[in-house]
Design a protein around this nucleic acid. Structure first.
Length: 283
DNA sequence: ACCGGTGCAAAGTCAGCTGT
DNA sequence: ACAGCTGACTTTGCACCGGT
């Protein structure tokens, strides 16, 4: 088949099915051989190259990301996908208890504490806007009962959140120590634990000149571009103390944790979608 | 028998190009 | 602008080997 020929529905379906099988294994922490799956898939396709199959997998990652699902780390989301892909992914997810169970287990699994590694650098640069689709799909009510909000569940996983905060605590102490600020490094405080979570940040740290650095930690076991929940308090604090505030986004937290930071007001970096409302009775 | 080092092939990743 | 694709690059796994 010549390049540029569009994928048939059957091809797209085979590709999505293969991807979801791998995703379930991935979420369960099982090992699998991506190449083997790709080769088996290619035998069902209409003479597609290895690269094009790879590319389609990246498109599926993008779809899953937009649907609020975890995706396979290593198939970096590529957003120029055809609309049919979206519909195929949605319908296969709807009837897929295996992926659902794996995703649920993954978001609820207690996190083990991960020490800051000496060897590899955990810092990465924040994703550039170009890597994400600028205009998000309009909010479309989705009343499917099977649709679960895995990211909300993960956000409620206290053990994961705590592990992330402790990781950042360690990271900050090490940073200051490396800058020769031993005293400051000892003053880094886990305020989420000592003063509760009403402050709008989790860790009180310091710049090397002694100014405060207010850090909100957001942790996910999934990939870099995974959306996250922020509270009204956190937004407000990031606006009120924009010069001191930094959001640390920890991702890939179970394997090799990485982190990027968003300094200042959260609204300056992210598009905020209201997802829940507080309903009060009319007076 | 066991350990760690080495080198190479297989597996995996991804930036950027191409045709419509 | 979009959907598809290429190929070069990086990482990982593993067979082999020599020293203990």
């Amino acid at each position: 088949m010549a390049r540029g020929d569009s994928w048939s529905r059957a091809e797209v379906e085979a590709c999505v099915a293969s991807y979801l099988t791998m995703l379930a294994l991935d979420l369960n922490g099982q090992r699998y051989n991506k190449t083997e799956y790709a080769e088996a898939l290619m035998r069902k396709l209409d003479d597609r190259s290895r690269g094009s199959v790879e590319f389609k997998h990246c498109n599926i990652s993008a779809v899953l990301l937009e649907l609020g699902y975890p995706s396979i780390n290593g198939y970096k989301p590529r957003f120029n996908y055809q609309l049919e892909l979206l519909s195929v992914v949605e319908s296969q997810l709807a009837g897929n208890p295996v992926v659902d169970a794996a995703a649920q287990a993954a978001v609820e699994r207690p996190a083990i504490e991960i020490p800051v590694s000496e060897s590899h650098d955990v810092w990465v640069v924040a994703p550039k806007p170009g890597n994400v689709r600028e205009k998000a799909a309009e909010y479309a009510p989705n009343f499917l009962p099977v649709r679960r909000d895995y990211l909300a569940r993960e956000a409620r996983n206290r053990s994961l959140g705590r592990a992330g905060e402790l990781f950042v605590l360690d990271l900050e102490a090490r940073r200051l120590h490396a800058e020769g600020k031993k005293l400051l490094s000892e003053r880094v405080e886990h305020v989420a634990a000592s003063k509760g979570d009403g402050l709008g940040y989790d860790v009180l740290s310091y710049e090397s000149d002694g100014r405060e650095r207010l850090i909100e930690v957001k942790t996910t076991a999934f990939g870099e571009l995974t959306p996250f929940y922020v509270s009204r308090n956190e937004i407000a604090r990031s606006n009120a103390d924009a010069d001191k505030y930094r959001l640390y986004r920890l991702f890939d937290f179970r394997e090799k944790p990485k982190v990027f930071q968003l300094p200042g007001s959260i609204e300056a970096h992210c598009r905020l979608d209201p997802v829940t409302y507080l309903a009060r009775f009319n007076s």
